[in-house]
Design a protein around this nucleic acid. Sequence first.
DNA 1: TATTGTTATACTCTATAACTATA
DNA 2: TATAGTTATAGAGTATAACAATA
Lengths: 135, 135
Amino acid sequence: MLDEMLGYCLRRAQVAMFLSFYEATRGQTITPPRFTALVIIGANPGISQSTLGAALGIARSGAMYLTQWMVDRKLVERRHIPNDGRSWGLHLTGYGRKVTEKMKRGVLAQDRKRSSVLPDQERNELFRLLSKLAG
Amino acid sequence: MLDEMLGYCLRRAQVAMFLSFYEATRGQTITPPRFTALVIIGANPGISQSTLGAALGIARSGAMYLTQWMVDRKLVERRHIPNDGRSWGLHLTGYGRKVTEKMKRGVLAQDRKRSSVLPDQERNELFRLLSKLAG
DNA sequence: TATTGTTATACTCTATAACTATA
DNA sequence: TATAGTTATAGAGTATAACAATA
């Protein structure tokens, strides 16, 4: 009965793709949320912790926890924002940028490799159908 | 860049489908793993805790935790297996069967409803592509 | 008053390891 | 020895609530 549900079918495919992520980041302590956070900060330098949390769908305190993890590893640094003493802007460090770029290449390549069971035309069709479903 | 990754696209679609699950089970404390466990036990009466855990991909102790949750709510009962004093067989109670059947209808209907943004032909194609991907 | 970051605390789910009783 | 269940314990990740500093 579970096989008739699109939700479960999606879940299984997602688990399979997660294995690719895991393989691409083996040995590192990077999880999908951490990786996503690094990519988001890289693409939006100066983003605040709260905004990052909102983008990831987690609470402020969780964003703090996640940010601290990246700061402790010198991947990210907090910089004061002018004209607002409350909030910090998040930026990748030089090291963080290097690590993130390397991970991006690895994760993308592995994602491509795993999804290569589908010819390009089917892969594109899958993207289209998933986007339609996600709304 | 995340948009180019099938893994992330799958994740987003899966989150959207999860909302359907959440709506279908609103007010109950049923999670996907709990629902899955009930469906599996219903389809495999007498299954052992360890086998259930293996099917769900969790450790023995986790299967114990999950089973106890269902037993506490009178959804499932443990029955001794003849000729083996170690293991228990898991069975839905009458009440558990009723609850499970009702949830199955609700979850299936909601899954159908959410995926109805896709015409049947596209929905079937999505199933096919996802299965191919999941291997 | 509202917002940002922070801290304290608790809860859920998961894992590992040790224990028991059976096999 | 090996297996099923159980228990104790610990960890990650999340949430809520309260607080300080700032707006």
